[in-house]
């Protein structure tokens, strides 16, 4: 993945977009300073600029992770290079986990750069480090789950575009599950629990809970399990 040009182009576009949004948010923050100064416990730079920037990155991630994951297995299958990996004696878990961690490493690298954007102003803005760390942990957890879902989608097809569409559909369903206006009342708690924002929002607000973190771990493990099963089945039974 790291040898392909388009992930880097994608990273450059994301960083440029978020950099521009940081400037806009900073302008608004400075404009609101006289008013904020009169409030007793006014929100600071972290609440108004840094965390919203990370939340914006989370929404962008919903789109870019399926694009990154689509090549992982579907692309290999389509190019005919998957047999090359299988012929090296690599087991399905090894192939899937190696792809997963490579993709996650790239995404965490991008997240580090995104977090660094507001941190460039740290000497003058005095960020709330705890809240920022919790938000970064939340985004990292979200990325780990999204990566696994995109990899699972990629394991079930040989068309990268189809893999991206499938991953996007799954991710949007998980994202919108909390929008329960049309859901039967008894399904509400289940849908709320399934929803990604239910577990991301507390982390963005600085509230770290093992239940929220466990949700992302379970989601990632389930998706990776599906991908491994699919690949192992491909070798054993077709």
């Amino acid at each position: 993945m790291l040898m392909r040009p388009w992930p880097w182009v994608l990273a450059a576009v994301v960083l440029a977009w978020l950099g521009w949004n940081l400037l806009l948010a900073l302008g608004e923050f400075l404009k609101a300073q006289p008013h904020l100064a009169t409030l007793p416990s006014a929100p600071g730079f972290t609440d108004i600029v840094a965390v919203p920037l990370l939340a914006q990155f989370a929404e962008i991630a919903l789109l870019i992770v399926p694009l990154l994951g689509m090549q992982a297995l579907a692309g290999e299958r389509r190019a005919g290079t998957l047999p090359l990996l299988l012929a090296q004696g690599l087991s399905a878990p090894v192939i899937v986990l190696a792809k997963y961690f490579a993709q996650l490493l790239w995404l965490v690298g991008l997240l580090t750069l995104v977090v660094a954007l507001p941190l460039l102003l740290a000497p003058t803005t005095h960020p709330d480090w705890g809240k920022l760390a919790a938000a970064a942990l939340g985004i990292a957890s979200l990325l780990s789950a999204l990566s696994a879902v995109s990899l699972a989608a990629s394991a079930f097809t040989r068309q990268p575009v189809l893999a991206a569409a499938l991953a996007l559909a799954l991710i949007l369903m998980l994202w919108a599950a909390a929008a329960q206006g049309h859901a039967p009342q008894q399904a509400g708690p289940v849908l709320r629990w399934l929803s990604l924002p239910t577990h991301l929002q507390p982390l963005l607000q600085g509230l770290v809970s093992t239940r929220d973190l466990a949700y992302f771990v379970i989601l990632a493990a389930l998706a990776l399990g599906c991908a491994i099963q699919r690949l192992a089945r491909e070798r054993a039974v077709a």
Partner: peptide
């Protein structure tokens, strides 16, 4: 023991697929 393939088998699939970006 699929790992036995790693050291002892060389395989050329049909149409010689390659990673194009390398």
């Amino acid at each position: 023991h699929p790992e036995a393939a790693r050291d002892h088998i060389g395989y050329l699939p049909e149409l010689a697929p390659v990673w194009p970006e390398l």
